[in-house]
Amino acid sequence: MNGVVDRVASLGRIGLDVIAAIGRSGIFLFQALAGRSRYGNGFSLLVKQLYALGVLSLAIIIVSGIFIGMVLALQGYNILKDYGSEQAVGQMVALTLLRELGPVVTALLFAGRAGSALTAEIGLMKATEQLSSLEMIGVDPLKYIIAPRLWAGFIAMPLLALIFCVVGIWGGAMVAVDWLGVYSGSYWANMQNSVQFGADVLNGLIKAVVFAAVVTWIAVFQGYDCEPTSEGISRATTRTVVYASLAVLGLDFILTALMF
């Protein structure tokens, strides 16, 4: 009997902890983004982070994009062939990438590549008292360290998703047109006829923006909120990847239900 009560109580405590963490992260986000950075070199800080989060993630995004586009074309071709409509493969590749795989896979890769690095970097700064020492120098680490990283994530990830889609569609064309022999005219024409800029491209972009915000937010907060020990950092890094992935997949369902 007592055991049951204990378990319920601990469940309640976990629930309260979770709600408190959400509240903390919300306040954290607000404090980081509210108001403008007073530090004159805000722009160069942003550029540095854009490089770290965007440019350095480019390689993995491009390679994955090409392969996913190629696989989509191959699978699509094999299925559509049975219905004699293999010229629709371009349309299938493009729609799949723009609506789903582009934003989702980019977000997952971004969480793994850039998100984990963000968490570890900020966690390490916390553990080595660099954040405290910024505070004591009279610099708000939320503005100086956190804000540029948040903005860089918000900007870089949607761009990466766009690049991912284009590269994927090109990879699909490579397989479908150059290898499987789908007529290139119908590959592109079918695509152009069925893909709508507003409904598909822009909605995909909106998804990417939402995912970017969530993934970056989680990564940065986990770093900032982590226990400042080597164990704490490694746990926070794992949490970033797990939470970010789950959040992306869950939100994807909600956004898809709303959009399409």
Binding site: L159, L162, V195, F197
Partner: peptide, 27 residues
């Protein structure tokens, strides 16, 4: 060089949007 690479990255992203608009969705 940092600024240049980041600039190129942003341009590549915008170019991708343009390609998606014109070539893929036939806008």
């Amino acid at each position: 060089t940092l600024e240049l690479t980041v600039g190129l990255f942003i341009l590549a992203g915008l170019l991708a949007l343009l390609i998606l608009a014109l070539r893929v969705s036939g806008l």
